[in-house]
Every structure is written in C-alpha cells, then in structure tokens.
C-alpha cells in the first residue's frame, strides 16, 4: 500500500512536469470512471456486507481458505467462469475475501477465469468465431487459469509440492 502511494505520487509528479494540461485531463478521466462505477460498487459492498454476516468466517476459511485449496480453487473457478463482473468490482471484492481468510490460490482462479473464461458471453463469442473454436478457446483458457492459480499458490506458500 505504501508502495502504491509512493509510485502514484512519483507518476503524478512526472506527468505534471511533462504536461500540466494532460495531468488535469487524466484526473478528469479518473473522476469520470470513478463516478461511473460507484453505484455497482456500492451495491457490491452492500451485498458482501450482508453475505459475510450470513456466512461465518470459519466456513469461508474452511472451504475457500488455505487448508482446502482444491475446493477453493474449484469453487473460485466456477464462480469466475459463470459470472460477469467488471474488474473494478472483482478486485476490491477479492481483497475483502483475502482479508476474510480466502486463499490467494482461490482468488487467482476466480479473477483469472472471470476475465478469460466466459460461459455467459459464449453466445456472443460463438457468433464471431463459431462454436468449435469458441469452445476450444474457453476450455484451454480454463486450463490456463488453473495453471496460473497453481503457480500463485506456490509463490504464496499455500501450495507445497
């Protein structure tokens, strides 16, 4: 977090020195984007605050936590594949889940399948590239997501081989 601030301040100063105008324009773009996602963001926080009350932390860490990587990763990848959630909502949600004891491996499987595998967007993809190619792409993508999750798990010390 401290690094994020240091990095951001560095970038803002650099941008400001190069062009004051462009920097202000960048701030405007940032504000516009923030305003645009605020409603769905608020809804996400409301939903999560209620759901996390209903599901005790012990249950979450039991099924999605470090001690049960297989179920966590499987569940994460299923949720990620069937839902459509903008990254602007998914990553904050993931950070909340990690705070509640969900493993990085499960979160990785959730965020990567969310981006790369699309069951709901399949009809759209099929229209462009035909069902055979789309099906192959989605299946291979799912595999890629699982490999990414496994490697994340190894680097975070959750998965020991």
């Amino acid at each position: 977090m401290t690094y994020l601030y240091i990095f951001a301040i560095f970038i803002i100063i650099l941008s400001f020195v190069k062009s004051r105008e462009k920097t202000y324009k960048g701030f405007k773009v940032a504000w516009k984007k923030l305003k645009k996602i605020l409603p769905s963001f608020t809804k996400m926080l409301i939903a999560v605050s209620v759901i996390l009350y209903l599901i005790p932390e012990s249950v979450i860490s039991k099924y999605l936590g470090g001690s049960n990587l297989f179920t966590g990763t499987l569940l994460g990848s299923i949720f990620g594949s069937i839902t459509i959630l903008p990254g602007f909502v998914a990553f904050p949600l993931s950070s909340v889940l990690i705070d509640k004891g969900v493993s990085y491996t499960a979160v990785a499987s959730f965020t990567t399948t969310l981006m790369l595998v699309g069951i709901i967007t399949f009809p759209v993809e099929k229209e462009y590239f035909g069902w055979k190619l789309s099906l192959t792409r989605n299946l291979v993508s799912y595999l890629i997501c699982i490999i990414i999750s496994i490697i994340i798990g190894i680097f975070y010390g959750e998965l020991i081989i």
Partner: peptide, 9 residues
C-alpha cells in the same frame, strides 16, 4: 483511478 486516468491520457 488516478493512475488509470493518467495512463489513458
């Protein structure tokens, strides 16, 4: 969001 905004500009 500020970083993203600057990136786009």
């Amino acid at each position: 969001f500020i970083l993203i905004g600057l990136f786009e500009v």
